[in-house]
């Protein structure tokens, strides 16, 4: 398939969705598809000219883009004359209004909860979690301490301080992101950095706990590369069996922090059999699997 994906930036930097799209498009290319990027405000060709220059089979875009009426109009007209699929992705809540949903075949979302249940009653909204890239995120032997990477604006939230400030003060965790001394980690380097770390803290922000749940990309990437130390979300029950939950997910922030301290100091270790179970639990949770699912839905 030839796919046109809308993006906000040419390379992942400021927007979480561009990291997600990078991993999705790599997976689609590994499955034999061609994924073009279209950055509306910077592209040298207007959208109509670009659409007419290639025969696209699928347009894939964050539903947020469809808050723009001109774009909505172009896509509505285009799909009337060309046999094309349009799939939306709902990454941020609240969702855009009705007209955005009418131009898409269906919408995928990594969210599960009250809001998405309500939307699913009105529109064709399908749960498709985020994932890891089986090319970029691989387990290797660990050597360094614990590392937290939050490349996007998320770590400006006070929740980050609740989880991390104490640990940063104690030098129990090294943090990378806009709010920290080290500002950015290239997504092509992230996997090997994670894989070299003794443990990998992860948490979800409070706004992600108000009736709607998501498993962030870090959840998948850290578990795939190293020893994750997660907060707790009910969605984790769908991935980890109880034996894994008690070793890798901690609802209590204090226990979460102590786990990081202990893994970092070597006071606690994780048995290789448990790591094997962790790896087994992640099978079929790569972006390649997710994209296969998305394409299956189009058939």
């Amino acid at each position: 398939m030839r796919i046109l994906a809308f993006t906000r930036e040419s390379y992942p930097s400021n927007y979480p969705t561009s990291y997600i799209l990078m991993h999705q498009s790599m997976a689609l290319e590994e499955l034999g598809h061609e994924v073009h990027y279209y950055q509306q405000d910077k592209h040298p060709l207007g959208l109509t000219d670009y659409l007419n220059s290639f025969s696209f089979d699928l347009i894939f875009l964050d539903l947020e883009f469809l808050r723009s009426n001109p774009l909505l109009r172009i896509l509505s007209q285009y799909r009337r004359i060309e046999p094309i699929h349009i799939v939306g992705a709902l990454y941020s809540l609240p969702a855009p209004p009705g007209p955005a949903w009418e131009v898409v075949d269906f919408t995928i979302t990594p969210w599960k909860g009250e809001t998405t249940s309500g939307l699913a009653a009105q529109f064709d909204l399908r749960y498709l979690p985020l994932a890891y890239s089986d090319r970029l995120h691989k387990r290797q032997s660990a050597s360094a301490g614990s590392i937290f990477v939050g490349n996007t604006t998320g770590n400006k939230h006070k929740e980050a301080g609740v989880y991390l400030d104490e640990l940063i003060g104690e030098r129990s965790v090294f943090c990378i992101g806009p709010e920290f001394t080290e500002k950015y980690m290239d997504p092509f380097m992230l996997g090997s950095l994670y894989a070299s770390s003794r443990c990998l803290p992860n948490f979800h922000y409070s706004w992600e706990k108000s009736g709607d749940c998501i498993l962030n990309e870090r959840f998948w990437q850290t578990a795939r590369c190293g020893i994750p130390v997660n907060d707790y979300s009910p969605l984790m029950d769908e991935v980890f069996e109880t034996g894994l939950l008690e070793h890798f997910c901690f609802a209590d922030t204090r226990i979460w922090q102590n786990r990081i301290r202990n893994l970092n100091s070597g006071a606690e270790t994780v048995h290789p059999a448990l790591i094997q179970k962790l790896d087994d639990s992640l099978k079929e949770h790569s972006y390649k699997d997710r994209m296969k699912q998305l394409l299956d839905w189009l058939r």
């Binding site: 030839r2 796919i3 994906a5 993006t7 040419s10 390379y11 992942p12 990078m22 498009s25 790599m26 290319e29 061609e34 994924v35 073009h36 990027y37 279209y38 950055q39 592209h43 290639f54 090319r135 997504p187 092509f188």
Partner: peptide, 16 residues
């Protein structure tokens, strides 16, 4: 090695 037009991350991945 080929990436979709504009897909800079993918092209960079190919170069690496």
């Amino acid at each position: 090695l080929i990436a979709g037009v504009g897909n800079l991350p993918s092209l960079l991945g190919h170069v690496l």
